[in-house]
């Protein structure tokens, strides 16, 4: 079984093979690790629970150096406009979100489309811990221990057709559960998109947990995207639909302010933003400021995806 597939593998690149080898290690660790071995059972239809612990997984290839941001910070400092625009609004209001039952629609350019109960989706996957840097376009950042699985694994199971060039993601739209959707602050539902090679990249995951627990609602429960080399708004939360398509989708923030929120949204200290200076960032929980790294420090894994693209134009 091939764990992942680069769209244009080049012999000069060591990374893919390296990742490939490590990838098998994850699987081995998943199978042998006691906590993780127990985890999938939690997600089976019979033992469905949103309060269960997913267990601690061993660090992976993508584990970030540096201290993890305190869990309390990750849970209380959020951008999730469906629950309000204040940083603490999601924490206060997200309890209204019903994450069980949850269904996920997979549609468009796939051979196997349909709407699936989340438990039926998750039973195919074992989870990995991925400690990733998250860089928000607002010039703050965190280091978050996600629990999830590669998006590529899910997409491949649904067999993308040759016309699948982009993946579009959609958040739940239900003002009863997401009170700020009653207000016209964004064009609901929230939408995001990735190019197919970005979506299939092994760094791109669907997360279902953090710090070994299921995702808190305000962090995008029950299932969210995490794309660590892009600004946080790309990592869409509480996903109800994944649609593969030939045309490039327009994401919500891009439609709102195209000059500020590009489709690619790659973390890049050199590319100017009219609102926040992208050269530095505040790591939440730290006193000082850090210099922002291009590709949020994941350049060795992803820079090749954008070769020949002027990232100041394709923002």
């Amino acid at each position: 079984m091939r764990a992942f597939c680069y769209p244009k593998p080049r012999s000069s690149e060591i990374t893919p093979r390296h990742l490939f080898e490590r990838r098998r290690e994850f699987l081995r660790q998943s199978a042998s690790g006691l906590a993780l071995a127990a985890a999938p059972a939690l997600w089976s239809a019979s033992a469905w629970s949103w309060t269960g612990r997913l267990g601690d997984a061993d660090p992976t290839e993508f584990t970030t150096e540096g201290d993890k941001t305190p869990k309390e910070a990750i849970k209380t400092y959020n951008n999730f406009f469906e629950f309000g625009t204040g940083k603490d609004d999601p924490h206060k209001n997200a309890h209204k979100l019903q994450t069980d039952p949850w269904s996920l629609e997979i549609s468009g350019e796939v051979e196997k489309s349909g709407t699936f109960g989340l438990e039926d989706v998750l039973k195919h996957h074992s989870f990995e811990e991925r400690i990733y840097r998250l860089r928000c376009v607002e010039a703050w950042s965190m280091v978050i221990p996600w629990v999830g699985f590669p998006l590529a694994d899910l997409l491949k199971r649904h067999e993308p057709t040759s016309r699948a060039k982009y993946a579009m993601f959609e958040t739940l739209h239900d003002p009863e559960q997401m009170p700020a959707q009653r207000r016209d602050i964004l064009d609901w539902p929230y939408r995001e998109g990735l190019r197919m090679d970005e979506a299939m990249h092994p760094l791109t995951i669907l997360a279902v947990g953090l710090y070994g627990d299921v995702l808190p609602n305000q962090n995008g429960a029950p299932i969210r995207l995490v794309v660590p080399w892009k600004y946080g708004y790309k990592s869409i939360k509480s996903i109800v639909r994944i649609h593969l398509q030939e045309k490039r989708p327009v994401s919500t923030w891009e439609a709102e302010r195209p000059n500020e929120y590009g489709f690619y949204a790659i973390v890049d200290p050199e590319v100017r933003h009219p609102r926040w200076h992208q050269a530095t960032e505040r790591r939440i929980g730290e006193d000082g400021r850090r210099r922002t790294e291009k590709f949020n420090g994941y350049g060795e894994h992803v820079a090749h995806l954008y070769e020949g693209m002027d990232l100041s134009e394709y923002r």
């Binding site: 305190p70 309390e72 910070a73 209380t76 400092y77 940083k87 703050w140 505040r282 939440i284 929980g285």
Partner: peptide, 8 residues
């Protein structure tokens, strides 16, 4: 003031 008091 939460985890980013400077901003607040």
């Amino acid at each position: 003031l939460g985890f980013h008091p400077a901003e607040a």
